[in-house]
Structures are given as C-alpha cells and as structure tokens.
C-alpha cells in the first residue's frame, strides 16, 4: 500500500508515492529525478547516499520517505551546480580528488556539513568528519586535501 507524501527537496516540493518501507533514497532517485545521491550498500555502512535532512547529514537509505514530510532535504543537486560548484566541489575538482566518482556526492554532503560546523577544520577534524564515508577507490588522501583546501579558501 502506498500513500502520497510531499517532500521538500532542495527548496522544491515533490509529490511522491511511498509505502511504509520506501526509503528516502529510493524516492529521490526514482521519483524526484535526483539520481546524484547514490545507492551503495543500502545498509548504512558506506555513506554514498548521504543527504542533509534539516541541515544535518543522514543516510538516505536508512531514512523512510514517509518520515520526512516536515523536513527540509538537501541533496548533492542542491549544494552546488556545474556552473556554480560549492567550495568543497570546487576544491575536489582543483585537487583531482575524484576517481570513479561514486562516493563523491556523499563526500561532498559530509564535507559541506562539516565545514558548516567547523569552518576552520584541521586535518584531524576533517578525517574524523569524513569517517562516515567510504571510498572504494581509496582516494582518501586527495579527498582530505581537497576539503582542507576548501576550508582554507573559505577562511581567507
């Protein structure tokens, strides 16, 4: 049995159909036409599906769509665009920190939330902050470097 839910994603309303077990991840990808959020493990482990809910990073694969009606959701599509990347996205490009790119949307979400909270994050804080996200290409060094660059750029 499915019901109608209206989600607010990246500032826009999306009417969706969701059953009791339908996750936010499924709805974002299949109904909101926002496939930037990736499905890796579907078990909360990898972080590829990270999105911001009420400004805080959560796993979209562990969040039920019907439990999001009153919450503001921000996906990778909402933090920056190819024309106007946010500081983290720009730094990832400049550092060459993207390999296959599968983990990148989740990394950007986690790093964006981290810098929001700790604009002057040092390397240790960045490593801790990104520990929620796995990169199967194991490009961690470059990713940490990029986020550190973004932090320094934002500070100056």
């Amino acid at each position: 049995m499915t019901e109608m839910v209206t989600l607010r994603v990246n500032g826009r309303e999306h009417p969706c159909r969701a059953g009791i077990a339908t996750t936010l991840l499924t709805v974002l990808r299949d109904q909101c036409e926002l496939p930037g959020t990736k499905r890796g493990c579907n078990q909360g482990v990898c972080g590829a599906c990270s999105v911001l809910v009420g400004g805080k990073p959560v796993r979209a694969c562990l969040t039920l769509a019907t439990d999001c009606e009153d919450r503001e959701v921000t996906t990778i599509e909402g933090v920056g665009t190819p024309a106007r990347p946010n500081a983290v996205q720009q730094a990832l490009i400049d550092t060459g920190a993207v390999q296959c790119g599968f983990c990148t949307p989740g990394m950007v979400i986690a790093a964006t939330a981290l810098l929001e909270e700790h604009p002057d994050a040092d390397i240790e804080t960045i490593r801790q902050g990104l520990s929620s996200n796995l990169c199967r290409c194991s490009g961690y060094r470059k990713i940490v470097e990029a986020v550190s660059l973004a932090a320094r750029r934002t500070a100056s």
């Binding site: 009791i20 077990a21 996750t23 579907n42 078990q43 909360g44 796993r59 694969c61 562990l62 969040t63 039920l64 439990d67």
Partner: peptide, 23 residues
Amino acid sequence: LAGGATLVAMMNAGLVEPNSLVA
C-alpha cells in the same frame, strides 16, 4: 521507529516487515 539506523537497515534486508510504524 527511532533513528531508523537499525530498523530500516533490517527492513531493507527483508529481515523485518512491520505492518505499522510509530515514529
């Protein structure tokens, strides 16, 4: 349903199929 970090993971794996959730 609290944080869902365990419950939704179990639902995704087909381990539990609750007929109603109380958030």
